[in-house]
């Protein structure tokens, strides 16, 4: 019986593996597109596999950068797993960058960040305008935050929407990233409102954004030169 079972399962796994991989890749691509959902008329969830592939083939450039801001050749952005990269020594880390070419010729830079929520990992994609200071949009996801509380970073569209138009440098040109705060917002261009009941997840998002965007700073500087 065990032999029969083993054959059935191994067969199914082999046959379905390409479909699984395609599904997983499209899922990740959709989460990248979610951060720039304003660019599309259609909701990202409703897009078909083909539409997602078309956007990636025609409009998105994928590059990988290292901690010094140099472009790494021969690696694909989708194969860079931040989870693995962030555990390496700083000098060896590589980060994915997706560049979306808008119809009017300007570019949106989408970078990936990863951090720790209350229960498990949280991650997200941050889209920056061509000036590399203003946030065009964000999308977050999580492995196991509490539904209704921490999970609101993904489930409640109002939370990521707050980030649009925020700046990651203050007036003096210092790096500040964007903070998720409780109560009164004192610096409207660098702060967004947190989720009540999810302080630790909110703080996790703040920390993730600060550390995550900092990794890309050398790269941003090299473009601006």
């Amino acid at each position: 019986m065990t032999v029969v079972v083993a054959f059935i399962l191994a067969g199914m796994q082999t046959v379905l593996k390409p479909i699984h991989e395609l599904n997983a890749a499209v899922y990740n691509k959709k989460s990248v597109l979610l951060s720039i959902s304003d660019e599309f008329d259609k909701s990202i969830d409703a897009m078909t596999v083909q539409e997602v592939q078309d956007i990636f083939d025609n409009k998105i450039e994928e590059i990988v950068v290292d901690a010094n801001g140099n472009i790494v050749e021969g690696e694909s952005a989708e194969e860079v797993l931040l989870e693995v990269e962030l555990k390496k020594p700083k000098a060896e880390q590589h980060y994915p960058v997706y560049i979306y070419n808008k119809d009017d010729g300007s570019k949106l830079y989408i970078v990936s960040v990863r951090g720790q929520g209350l229960w498990d990992a949280i991650w997200g994609n941050i889209a920056l305008q061509q000036d590399l200071e203003t946030i065009a949009g964000v999308s977050f996801d999580h492995a196991g935050e509490t539904p209704g509380l921490g999970a609101e970073i993904k489930d409640n569209p109002a939370f990521p929407e707050q980030f649009e138009g925020k700046e990651i440098y203050n007036d003096e040109g210092e790096y500040t990233a964007v903070q998720v705060v409780k109560g009164i917002i004192r610096q409207p261009s660098h702060q967004v409102e947190g989720i009540s009941g999810a302080t630790i997840t909110s703080d996790g998002v703040t920390k993730m954004l600060y550390n995550g965007l900092q990794n890309y700073e050398p790269y941003f500087e090299s473009i601006q030169k």
């Binding site: 199914m12 479909i19 499209v26 899922y27």
Partner: peptide, 10 residues
């Protein structure tokens, strides 16, 4: 599990 993963990933 394998079927669902192929049919509806979300």
């Amino acid at each position: 599990e394998l079927t669902l993963k192929a049919v509806n990933y979300t």
